[in-house]
Write a protein that binds this DNA or RNA. Sequence first.
DNA 1: ATGAAAGCGCTAACAG
DNA 2: CTGTTAGCGCTTTCAT
Lengths: 342, 342
Amino acid sequence: MYTIKDVAREADVSIATVSRVINGKDRVKKETREKIVRAIEKLKYVPDQAARTMISKKTKTIGLVVPLLSNEYWAQMAEMMQRRLIKQGYSLLISTFNFDDHNDLSFLDTFMERKVEGVIIGAWPKPFSESDQACIGMLQSQNIALVSLAHVTNNVIFIGGDHLSSSMEAVGHLIRLGHHRIAYLGGAGVGFERELGYRNAFMLNRLQIDESLIVSERDHTLHYFSQYGYEQTCRLVTERAEFSALFCANDLIAIGAIKALEEHGLRVPEDIAVVGFDDITAAGYYRPALTTVKQPIEDMANAAADVLLEQIEHPDARSPQRKIMFPMQLVVRESCGSRRQP
Amino acid sequence: MYTIKDVAREADVSIATVSRVINGKDRVKKETREKIVRAIEKLKYVPDQAARTMISKKTKTIGLVVPLLSNEYWAQMAEMMQRRLIKQGYSLLISTFNFDDHNDLSFLDTFMERKVEGVIIGAWPKPFSESDQACIGMLQSQNIALVSLAHVTNNVIFIGGDHLSSSMEAVGHLIRLGHHRIAYLGGAGVGFERELGYRNAFMLNRLQIDESLIVSERDHTLHYFSQYGYEQTCRLVTERAEFSALFCANDLIAIGAIKALEEHGLRVPEDIAVVGFDDITAAGYYRPALTTVKQPIEDMANAAADVLLEQIEHPDARSPQRKIMFPMQLVVRESCGSRRQP
DNA sequence: ATGAAAGCGCTAACAG
DNA sequence: CTGTTAGCGCTTTCAT
């Protein structure tokens, strides 16, 4: 592990000159530069980030918080962000919730220690609790840039999909197909916005909402698993709830729901139409292929990274609080069936 | 952003004493300690990792290389590792292949700059090429600990599943079900070991292998997508290949294959039995539920992390080259059907 | 165009 | 028990 000193000795110059060559800031005589470049290559010298950080006060590190990585949506989000950030010389520290753990904000410790320059919050451990506010406060007090992919009350730049509108569109599609008894399986976080979309679609079409068909789990950990969709659907069917369509807050739930439906002898889409959300890869390959809403993950990831870096690199240029919403696309496949006779 | 100096001033002691309290190494008088702790809390002081790193030469950072994160298997692996490592005070830098990029070893640059103490290679960009060797050489020359989850020729500790044995078991299961014309859809990397397992099962049962039923794609990027399974199966069916069962190197391929089969009017498992590999979450919820092989991801992730940390923290204790193989479990569900009449 | 030297924040001897 | 001080590897004035 060579240092700048070794390079300087090897090239027979001072460390200052080596530094100049590395950073390309000051002018250096051509032959001197070449001599130094040769020395660097010979020794396979790589500047020490830690030493640089001490001076520049820049760790070139960003923290990302996601609920879990073993969820295609978040995994893709993380991957796209990492790709974008690394191009700009930043590293990404990924942290997942510890569902078991009671300290939901434990990721902050790591982020503070590593002195991340910015944080991207994918979802809040406890949406709309004081814990978000504590987190936001902490970050702001340390002057750490912040961008959120989940809705928050205020002061934080939000980037995400337009869940409400696209849910309205998805449910609207079902309604146009002739369904007016549509069950909803969702949860906290964005699930809540999707529920609002569902309600709006009903109101817009002057349809009565049957609250018993709305299953909204407050515990946000559950809806990351198909199991939830499976169990709740079993329950609905067993309780003889009347519905001809099912709108699920995500594809995982939809897949679990379809399994439950089929096990109870209900065919999809013939007996029950199902619509999911997210368009995970499996959606297109599932049978029936899932009708779902595709999120522009890459666009969102890029936007989040760019907005964050903008804040970091131009801290003076006041970066106004705003919401950046991306439209999402309804992907009609088989699971919602074709138009019914009225 | 306060420094140790600020804390020292606030508590009216020297920075050395503050350092002592923080690291709990030397004895400090109780009241002095309390005074300092109070100052630390008041200022919300967090020690600067960069400065510490300069002295200890320890970055407490590990690099992980995976093909892609938007693949449940790797996402889970990454998540489990991160969980394990953070408990030991290490951070994880995750890097994914750049399939487009020609520089397969670009992740090394980041890792060198950030001075990772150890690297976990999930898969090699170009299995068995000189590029692995170059990477291994580089890492070893810098004294960076290394653990691989993919087979390599030598000198590297390997941790992984026993792909060969479990493939043999899976194919053996199909054979026992009465199938003797079994197609194989696989690829490079571990796919190759799975192919060997397939071949071994045939030999063990004194069955003739029909090479035309073995589809082995060298380009390792393809088999991360269901598309590959779909296309190759379409091809097999169109070419009127004769087979009653299909062993796929992973569940994604299996899902694509089943879609292709059904589209050609072949029912699974009635007409064709299908077995996958990995047991991704969707496998159990797919219809027909996939018969597959479950990998002990958590065990492997923990073992990899532990072995790596052992090397890092006890560099003197010679850590012998070895392979640590975990058994995998055949999970029989619906897609392979029940026993046929001979 | 280049070198000398002063730190960045921290730890680890070495003194007291 | 606590303070003083010498660096860790690098960037950045300030001289030359």
